[in-house]
Design a protein around this nucleic acid. Structure first.
Length: 465
RNA sequence: GGUGCUGUACCCAAGUGGCCUAAGGGGGCGGUCUGCAAAACCGUUGUUCACCGGUUCGAAUCCGGUCGGCACCUCCA
């Protein structure tokens, strides 16, 4: 299968050609664990998961590396604000290490519930300080750094291609328009590689370094760890669209200034999830999390389906109405699949193959999942295709979609309380007696217990509401 | 102030020059079926792609303008 990906670097659709034949090195920017991930964050992780699944589906062996930012994110300007981890720790009275641990666990709960495949390597920044120091030293040796006010800065003027990913026109940027410029900087866009001076007193997270005891700047971890695990050149680097102008721009500067060669071949970015009030963001205080959606009665996979309906490069408007419609769609789908039994066909007919072929075509074309879903629905609704073939095709499609489609029959057999079964049995008798009033009231009781009875030619079917 | 994206039916959302007299899902409506329901099935729900003008044999798709929405240029997926 030929894969086409939209590369942020070229702003074009490009044919995907890996660095080494059928192995793909994939690095995705992971969570900052000072707070819960909100559903906007999760949208990006779902996008990255479908990307990885698609690559595996297309026959590649994927090595996926994801960082955990458990140090170094700051509240203010990237270089001089308060550390977010420290802030949360101060507010909750816990240690920064506990905070990181707590939110990392919470993050992976969401991750698993969304049926996202775990990365081959999960790397916490705090466990890779040595690699970061080594990279900074390398930059220092290459003359790309300077020390001012106790901190080590990267000098962007030593890297002529600075800003190429974001297509920044440096002279047009109004640095300092919204924040105070750090007077230590030679160029306002310079950024810190290593801090020894914290404006906020002692931090828990400090390490010895050639420049003194301190902690790393927040861009260095991704460059250092990705090269450590994937080599100095690898295939794909992903993140949210917001990472383009600063974070990824700085990462490229560090990595390529150090090695002198191209670092990442394909850059891919997920667009934002929006609410009626605009972008969902942590700093605004109010945001939705997966556990909150579950409290509202949604399944994590309802949200996954919701995200699959829109292309990853377009902004997606979140609403509970939209989520409802995704839930209904997914439930309808699962119910249909539950009817197919559990026998898969060994091969697919030409007719069925048309759907899997178009599915592959869409999916490999820059991950056009919404179109791929229309192939899926076409398959499901085609009466000329046998249930067993449908199951085979669906399990093939689910390699990419990750909706646990083949779990449908299991869900059907979910234990039903004996109380409900008794009521249904009584109702069956009432029906035999043609006592419709009693039958209907018994059905109402079943409904109250959260179940629905459907009369089918094979007898009553009980479904959880 | 600069940069980029975007405006498609009741809702979400594909499609970016001719297979489009516009995918798919959700919702609504009518019907078949059913003791009644539910499910399923059939039909229906935009002659039109914010608006105006242009290019073209041909435009939702390209160009110009107008009016909206959003994001980025602080941290944020």
């Amino acid at each position: 299968m030929k894969v086409q990906l939209y590369n942020t670097m070229s702003r074009k659709l490009e044919e995907f050609v890996p660095v080494s034949e059928d192995h793909v090195g994939l690095y995705t920017c992971g969570p900052t664990v000072y707070n819960y991930a909100h559903i906007g964050n999760l949208r990006t992780f779902i996008f990255e998961d479908t990307l990885k699944r698609m690559l595996m589906h297309a026959g590649y062996k994927v090595k996926h590396v994801m960082n955990i930012t458990d140090v170094g994110h700051l509240t203010g300007d990237g270089d001089d604000g308060e550390d977010k981890m420290e802030k949360t720790a101060r507010e909750t009275g816990k240690s920064v290490w506990d905070i990181a641990d707590f939110y990392t666990k919470a993050f992976f709960r969401d991750y698993d519930e969304l049926n996202i495949i775990r990365p081959e390597v999960v790397c916490p920044a705090t466990k890779h300080i040595d690699q970061m120091i080594a990279l900074i030293k390398r930059l220092e040796d290459g003359g790309h750094t300077y020390i001012a006010g106790g901190n080590v800065y990267f000098s962007i003027d030593t890297f002529p291609q600075y800003g190429k990913l974001a297509r920044l026109r440096l002279e047009d940027l109004k640095s300092g328009a919204r924040i105070d410029v750090d007077t230590n900087k030679r160029n306002p866009k310079d950024f810190v590689l290593w801090f020894t001076q914290s404006k906020f007193g002692k931090q828990d997270m400090m390490w010895d370094s050639p420049w003194g005891r301190g902690y790393p700047g927040w861009h260095i971890e991704c460059s250092a760890m990705s090269m450590h695990y994937l080599g100095e050149q690898f295939d794909i680097h992903c993140g949210g669209i917001d990472a383009i102008p600063v974070h990824h721009t700085n990462e490229i500067a560090q990595a390529e200034a150090a090695t002198g060669k191209q670092w990442v071949k394909y850059w891919m970015h997920g667009e934002f999830l929006l609410t009626d009030k605009g972008k969902m963001s942590k700093s605004s205080g109010e945001f939705l999390t997966l556990p909150v959606l579950k409290e509202h009665g949604y399944d994590a996979l309802d949200y996954r389906y919701f995200c699959l309906g829109a292309h990853y490069r377009t902004q997606l408007q979140f609403s509970f109405e939209g989520l409802d419609s995704a839930r209904n769609a997914r439930l309808n789908l699962m119910q249909r699949i539950a009817e197919y039994g559990d026998k898969k066909a060994d091969s697919l007919s030409e007719k069925a193959k048309q759907y899997t072929d178009s599915f592959d075509e869409f999916v490999c074309n820059d991950l056009s999942l919404s179109r791929a879903l229309s192939s899926l629905w076409g398959l499901v609704k085609d009466e000329e295709i046998s249930p067993s073939e449908k199951l085979t095709a669906l399990s093939y499609m689910d390699e990419v979609l990750g909706l646990k489609l083949l779990d449908a029959p299991k869900a059907k057999e979910e234990a039903i309380p004996s109380e409900v079964l008794e009521l249904v049995e009584k109702r069956g008798q009432a029906k035999k007696d043609k006592n419709w009033a009693l039958a209907d009231s018994l059905r109402a009781e079943v409904e109250n217990l959260g179940y629905t009875v459907k009369d089918t030619p094979q007898g009553p079917q009980i479904l959880k509401k």
